[in-house]
């Protein structure tokens, strides 16, 4: 592959301490992000998508902890182990602001209500590039212009509550992009927006990504969005990636029963009247109950005894396509 590797996550385990319990949320997640490409992480609510990306930038809540695994960020052929940096140390902060930008789910609550929008976007410029406020504001204005916010010269002096939802999300994207990062992590960036705005925001992100050759980690549960945006897809279920492959691998040859079920439950136009949208039976299990075997077994129509009794290894279907399922035992195990 001529693709340039920029972020590598290997065997990441993250757990949360709740009272006396230690609950594993992310269990051995590995993936790679390439320069200028989009990795989509898909899965139901609560499957550990957000925790995975928050582990990368070490923005876990206080009771969250990375137990195992490595996160490597490659900058100009130099490898930086993010998991070994101090959570709020200088180096980690520099990477968070300058190299990895983040866009969160709900633009309504992502901006501080008491500060002017321009100041909030300019903050990281002033922090990392030691810019004067006046120069930083110039950058902010040109960034907001790029993101399609009308009349940015006067809008930088407005407060977040004077912006609509879509405009706020543009501001949040501006905050993520202002220091020109290599990677943008978008954690369900359009979930809280209405449908017409969703399309605009996604188009905008795609455009920026292609134009400025950014890598994008897109977290979503919207398969339609994945089809439009992604180069690589990781399907997550209960803290594990159950299937990992290129966009074509996942959409043309979905292999894991969970992936197939997800694809079947996408609403499409043109259904017959009375024809029901398929859903996945059962509900997500308690992470404490999943100890051994495949977490999806209880909801899976192909489940067998062997799915539940021992650890299920990843199988390599094609050079780009991996799946964690006992249905593919004729394929070689993935060597780590």
């Amino acid at each position: 592959m001529q693709n340039e590797l920029i972020l590598k996550v290997e065997n990441l385990h993250t757990s949360f301490t709740v009272g006396p319990l230690n609950i594993p949320i992310v269990k051995g997640v590995s993936f790679e992000v390439y320069k200028g490409k989009t990795l989509a992480i898909v899965g139901e609510s609560g499957c550990g998508k957000s925790v995975t990306v928050h582990s990368i930038v070490q923005l876990l809540p206080r009771n969250g902890r990375i137990d195992q695994g490595t996160v490597t960020y490659i900058e100009d052929n130099e490898e930086v182990r993010l998991d070994q940096l101090q959570r709020y140390g200088k180096k980690m902060r520099k990477i968070r602001g300058e190299n990895i930008g983040m866009v969160f789910q709900d633009p309504m609550t992502s901006l501080n209500p008491v500060y002017r929008v321009g100041d909030q976007v300019a903050e990281s410029l002033m922090q990392h590039f030691k810019m004067k406020k006046k120069d930083a504001m110039k950058e902010v204005i040109s960034m907001l212009k790029k993101l399609g916010i009308p009349d940015p010269e006067s809008r930088i002096n407005d407060y977040p509550h004077q912006f609509s939802g879509g405009m706020k999300q543009r501001v949040v994207i501006a905050t993520a992009m202002i220091c020109n990062p290599d990677i943008i992590i978008a954690d369900e960036p359009t979930t809280a927006l209405d449908v017409t705005i969703q399309a605009q925001i996604m188009e905008l992100m795609k455009e920026l990504q292609v134009k400025y050759n950014k890598s994008l980690i897109l977290i979503t549960h919207n398969m339609g969005l994945v089809a439009e945006m992604a180069d690589q897809v990781a399907v997550m279920y209960m803290g594990r990636i159950v299937e990992y492959g290129s966009l074509t691998d996942i959409f043309e040859h979905p292999s894991h029963p969970y992936t197939k079920a997800l694809l079947r439950s996408v609403p499409v136009l043109g259904k017959q009247e009375g024809e029901l949208l398929e859903t996945i039976p059962g509900s997500t299990p308690n992470p404490l109950d999943c100890t051994v075997g495949c977490e999806f077994a209880d909801r899976c129509e192909f489940a067998q005894e062997k799915c539940r009794i021992k650890d299920v290894p990843y199988r390599q279907l094609t050079p780009t396509h991996q799946v964690r399922c006992t249905l593919f035992e004729e394929h070689p195990e993935v060597v780590k």
């Binding site: 930038v57 923005l59 990281s124």
Partner: peptide
């Protein structure tokens, strides 16, 4: 959320 966003900017 805006505290998380503030932290994601890498400020001390």
């Amino acid at each position: 959320d805006y505290i998380k966003l503030a932290r994601s900017k890498g400020i001390p």
